[in-house]
Amino acid sequence: MSETAARTVSLVVVDDHPVVRDGLRGMFTAAPGFEVLGEAANGVDALAVVERCDPDVVLMDLRMPGGGGVAAIAELTRRGARSRVLVLTTYDTDSDTLPAIEAGATGYLLKDAPRDELFAAVRAAADGRSVLSPAVASRLMTRVRTPAADPAGTALSAREREVLVLVARGTTNREIAAELFISEATVKTHLTHVFAKLGAKDRAAAVAVGYDRGILG
């Protein structure tokens, strides 16, 4: 058996559904070569658990009350955490996939992935190799080959898209600041840029334009 195959890979599981966390913990605990060190129910708690446990891989859900996955991935990247993040979610829309990868995720799998594929993906992530589910890889290739039709200078940045997605969900500036680990003043600055780029006068108009241009799925 090779050294890579023999090495035990440590994990932290992040998902807001207890049943999902229990299922993943049980699955990896029963499989040879894996060790689950901890779990968290949202992105904010995940940061503390990852800092304490220092796992090889973080299995990260994206949409979670109390702190989303993309913001947590970005913060882990900013902190220089050695843990690789493998996104495991039910969502494969551009508004979820692209920000997660831009934030620093090593891989992106959907929750319907077969067990063996998930095991292989976790090992690959631990080795620093990128893993994308076929559906996600196809979307990214399409996005790369078909650039957005926005005129130069009007495309939203990854963080501006994150803010707009949260605005579309009815999230307040204070809640957005907490979820993205930024100040309310920074949120307002991002919104000012979003309004200017979309030619919108307020939040509702920005959301409407976002859906019209396909920025919001």
Rank of each mutant, 00 (worst) to 15 (best):
G23K: 03
L24D: 07
R25W: 04
R25Y: 00
G26M: 03
M27G: 07
M27V: 02
T29A: 13
P32L: 11
P32M: 01
P32V: 06
P32D: 13
G33L: 01
G33Q: 04
F34P: 00
F34L: 03
F34Y: 12
E35W: 00
E35H: 15
V36A: 03
V36K: 01
A40Y: 00
A40K: 00
A41T: 15
A41Y: 12
N42V: 04
N42T: 10
G43I: 08
V44Y: 09
V44F: 11
D45T: 10
D45M: 11
A46N: 00
A46M: 10
A46C: 11
A46H: 04
A48R: 15
A48F: 06
V50N: 00
E51F: 08
E51G: 15
R52L: 12
C53K: 12
C53R: 14
C53A: 13
D54C: 02
P55V: 01
D56R: 05
V57H: 05
V57G: 08
V57A: 03
V57Q: 06
L59E: 02
L59K: 02
M60W: 06
M60R: 02
M60Q: 00
M60K: 01
D61N: 12
D61L: 09
D61E: 10
R63D: 15
R63N: 14
R63T: 13
M64N: 01
P65H: 00
P65I: 08
P65G: 03
P65K: 08
G67L: 09
G68D: 12
G69F: 09
V70D: 07
A72L: 08
A74L: 12
E75F: 08
E75I: 09
E75N: 00
L76P: 09
L76W: 05
T77P: 11
T77F: 03
T77V: 14
T77Y: 07
T77N: 14
R78P: 08
R78F: 06
G80E: 11
G80M: 08
G80H: 13
G80L: 00
G80D: 12
G80A: 09
G80Y: 12
R82K: 15
R82L: 10
R82H: 13
R82C: 11
S83N: 03
S83P: 04
R84K: 15
R84Q: 15
L86A: 05
L86Q: 03
V87D: 12
V87S: 04
V87R: 02
V87C: 05
L88S: 02
L88H: 03
L88V: 12
T89L: 00
T89C: 07
T89N: 07
T90M: 15
Y91P: 02
D92N: 00
D92R: 08
D92C: 02
D94V: 11
D94M: 13
D94L: 14
D94Q: 14
S95K: 08
S95V: 13
S95T: 13
D96L: 10
D96M: 13
T97V: 15
T97R: 01
L98G: 00
L98R: 13
P99Q: 02
P99I: 06
